[in-house]
């Protein structure tokens, strides 16, 4: 169970792995996530499922090295097994034929956006995808995204590839051009989702965001993943992970995500001193 069948580094500090998980692959719907543990003293972290193959019984995960667990996972190789893999968790994306759906993916958010755009396309929507990253080297899954989008717009903050600018600017231009947009799905770093939500609010465009709060159990038992939506406290794991972007308190989410910054560094430094930890790359460095 949970054997790593394929693994590749697809960007600086970004990995993609195909994992054997028969039941999860069978039950998965777009928008859902898994909770994993790498080893017996490991923490539980949520990762959105980037793809699945229900016939082969595999799921694809894409992650960026940020804390001890994502670094640890990054050092695991084909043939190794995850200690635990639990899912699919969270509510699936509400998919129907809305008309035109714009998917906005920033950085690592491109991975969870992929199955949603795929589902939206299969439901008969006209799908426009806008994906972006800080710089060309941080872009990934562009070819996969092209396959599940009728139109694909790519931007980089530094202009090294595609349109020069933020994804929000690309979205704004698209709307201002008069493109009929019925639904926006935005996944990425919190500032990006916040900016997209602020933009679309002005146009009164329904906008769904997928949140990534800190979680422990992922089944509604602990409440670590509390987020405020429309002034109400919700649990990211069972009420989400997707919420109405216009109602989410992004500032609270940002603060809550920083809760363990100190301990995270301690854990990471300790991991780097282990035999396995020596194998990890330098943050922000090359592959």
């Amino acid at each position: 169970m949970f054997e790593i069948l394929e693994k590749a580094r697809i960007g600086p500090g970004v990995h993609r792995a195909v994992i054997s998980a028969l039941e999860i692959a069978r039950a998965h719907r777009p928008g859902q996530f898994v909770i994993l543990r790498c080893y017996d003293q490991g923490e539980r972290i949520p990762l959105t499922i980037a793809d699945k193959d229900s016939e082969k019984g595999t799921i694809t995960l894409v992650w960026q090295e940020v804390g001890v667990t994502t670094y640890h996972f990054g050092t695991m190789e084909v043939g190794e097994r995850l200690q635990d893999l639990c899912g699919p968790l969270g509510k699936p994306t509400h998919i129907e034929n809305f008309g035109t759906v714009v998917g906005v993916g920033g950085g690592i958010g491109i991975a969870p956006l992929y199955p949603i755009t795929k589902g939206m396309m299969a439901a008969g929507n006209h799908v426009i995808s806008i994906i972006g990253a800080r710089t060309e080297g941080l872009l990934f899954m562009t070819e996969e995204m092209r396959k599940v989008s009728h139109e694909l717009l790519i931007s980089t903050d530094d202009g090294s590839y595609g349109i020069h600018g933020f994804v929000t600017q690309v979205l704004k231009d698209l709307i201002d051009k008069g493109t009929k947009v019925d639904m926006v799905v935005a996944i990425g770093p919190v500032p990006m989702m916040k900016a997209v939500a602020n933009l679309t609010r002005g146009y009164n465009l329904p906008t769904v965001v997928s949140l990534n709060p800190i979680m422990v159990d992922g089944t509604g038992m602990c409440g670590a993943c509390r987020v405020e939506v429309g002034g109400k406290t919700m649990f990211g794991c069972v009420d989400g992970p997707e919420f109405d972007g216009h109602l989410v308190d992004f500032d609270l989410l940002t603060k809550r995500l920083a809760m363990y910054k100190g301990p995270e560094l301690i854990a990471l430094n300790r991991f780097r001193e282990t035999e396995r930890g020596c194998k990890c790359s330098i943050p922000g460095g090359g592959a």
Partner: peptide
């Protein structure tokens, strides 16, 4: 047991 176990607590 943190940091022997990876999960932190305040």
């Amino acid at each position: 047991m943190f940091p022997e176990a990876d999960t932190p607590i305040a």
